[in-house]
């Protein structure tokens, strides 16, 4: 396929993706303008956009939005990185050792259904409000999906691929490096996606409860005191847009570079060949 054609295809895909969103925005705008919705509760997209322009400092006001976005991103990404650093090695250990799994999995099944935000008040007592508390809460939200996906990925690998490498005289390290890690990569990426999404979701609640002066969650929550609905909506839109951008740009790129090249999706069965 010529590269120009490919570019055209991608443009079509992007337009197709944006069209329903634009449709929704148009409907929303019209609903507010015709008085179908109350503007003081549901401001029109144009009002939100104007507020966003102000918050970005484009009209001469203080550019606070970047500061909030930066603070939120820093916390969520740090928590996610910690979740990967803890969840992946632990997932490998639990996936490989029956013994470890027997001891740890009851504790995990107890922790898993617990919403991470529930820890916030306790952490507030221990560490007080601030970045530390928020990062710990986000970490607790992100670590379990990463851990579970890793564990499942390692277990799904099966014995025969390991045997193939062992029959070539491969060491334990060879097995880990050449079989277990690449074989569990699709599951790892799923875990990363879920982990980051959980980190990002937990962040807002944690920031509402524990942030001192920055973060999107803080921005939304503090706007409540002035009944500043437009600012709240700017925050909500930022959360959605950034969450989507992380999912598509970061993990989408990772997937295209790895598993999409390795596995051809069988259109008939939907499974991997």
């Amino acid at each position: 396929m010529p590269p120009g054609f490919r570019l055209f295809d991608r443009v079509i895909v992007v337009v197709q993706f944006l069209l329903p969103i634009l449709g929704l925005l148009l409907f929303w705008e019209l609903a507010v303008r015709t008085g179908l919705a109350q503007a003081s509760i549901l401001p029109a997209p144009s009002t939100i956009l104007a507020r966003a322009v102000e918050l970005l400092g484009l009209t001469g006001e203080r550019a606070v939005l970047f500061g909030h976005i930066g603070a939120s991103l820093k916390r969520a990404l740090l928590a996610f990185a910690l979740a990967v650093a803890v969840g992946v090695p632990l997932g490998f250990l639990l996936g490989l050792s029956r013994e470890a799994q027997l001891w740890v999995s009851p504790i995990l099944s107890l922790m898993l259904p617990l919403p991470a935000v529930a820890w916030t008040p306790i952490l507030l007592v221990v560490f007080g409000p601030g970045d530390l508390t928020i990062v710990i809460v986000c970490f607790l939200g992100a670590v379990f999906p990463v851990l579970y996906s890793t564990m499942q990925g390692v277990r799904a690998c099966g014995t025969q691929p390991v045997w193939v490498v062992r029959s070539m005289g491969g060491s334990r390290l060879d097995v880990l490096r050449r079989v277990l890690i690449p074989a569990s990569l699709p599951a790892l990426i799923t875990g990363f996606k879920l982990g980051m999404a959980h980190s990002w979701r937990t962040l807002v609640a944690a920031e509402m409860l524990a942030a001192l002066s920055s973060g999107l969650g803080y921005m939304i929550f503090s706007a409540r005191s002035y009944m500043d609905v437009s600012t709240m909506f700017v925050g909500v839109v930022c959360l959605a847009a950034i969450g989507m951008a992380i999912e598509h740009l970061l993990f989408g790129t990772l997937e295209r570079a790895t598993i999409h090249r390795w596995y051809v999706r069988d259109a008939g069965t939907g499974g991997r060949q």
Partner: peptide, 11 residues
Amino acid sequence: IVFQEFVLFPW
């Protein structure tokens, strides 16, 4: 060793 299900490394 050669297995029935090939056991190739897809990556």
